[in-house]
Simulated scan of single mutants.
Amino acid sequence: MSSPPVDDQDSPAPPRRERPSRLTDIAVALLFAVADAVIVVVGAIWHFVIGMGTAPSPDSPRPAQSRDIPVLIWLVIWGIPAVAAAGAFVHARLRMPVTAVVQGLFTLVCTLLAVAWTRMLLS
């Protein structure tokens, strides 16, 4: 004789992760917002300073020569938005919506800064 069919309701369900409290989510989001703002401001200042330092002078008769850009520079420029996107994804999976939105906005700003840095370095 065959055994009776096993009912799915009798099997133990995998434990669901508890969602962090809204207060924890907001506190973490505020900490990330402050850190992200510092990173964006420092990145924008570096962009301005380095851009002004490498700009050709108006009295220069010849165009600036192209130079090789180390791979490490490209990894830093495009690695920061990649890490920010991973952070936004992780916080979304942890069910922390406020922090995920803050990290998503930071990803957007970092991507815009990376595009600006890339344009500056390639010009």
Rank of each mutant, 00 (worst) to 15 (best):
H91N: 14
W117P: 03
R95M: 04
G79E: 04
W74T: 09
W117K: 09
R95T: 03
A64P: 13
R62V: 13
W74M: 07
G104C: 07
L112Y: 10
V102C: 00
G87P: 01
R93H: 02
Q103V: 03
R95G: 04
V101Y: 00
Q65D: 15
A100S: 12
V76H: 03
C110Y: 02
P97A: 03
L122F: 02
R93G: 04
G104R: 00
A64D: 15
V90C: 01
R119F: 06
D68L: 12
I80N: 09
R119H: 10
A116S: 05
V90Q: 04
S66C: 12
R67M: 12
A84Y: 10
C110W: 01
W74L: 14
R119M: 11
P56L: 09
L108E: 07
F106M: 09
R62T: 13
S60Y: 08
V90G: 01
P61Q: 11
I80P: 01
D59P: 00
V115I: 12
W78I: 05
T99W: 02
W74F: 11
A92P: 03
C110Q: 13
C110F: 02
L72E: 13
I69C: 14
A64Q: 15
A85K: 03
A82Y: 09
P97I: 01
V83M: 11
L94A: 14
P63C: 09
L75H: 11
F89A: 14
P97N: 01
S123D: 14
D68V: 10
S66K: 15
L122T: 08
A64G: 15
V71D: 08
V98L: 04
D68Q: 14
A92L: 13
W117D: 06
L94Q: 14
G87R: 08
G79R: 02
P56E: 10
T99E: 05
M120V: 04
I73D: 10
V115R: 01
W117A: 06
T118A: 04
L105R: 04
V83D: 10
A88Q: 03
L94G: 08
L121E: 06
S66I: 11
V83I: 15
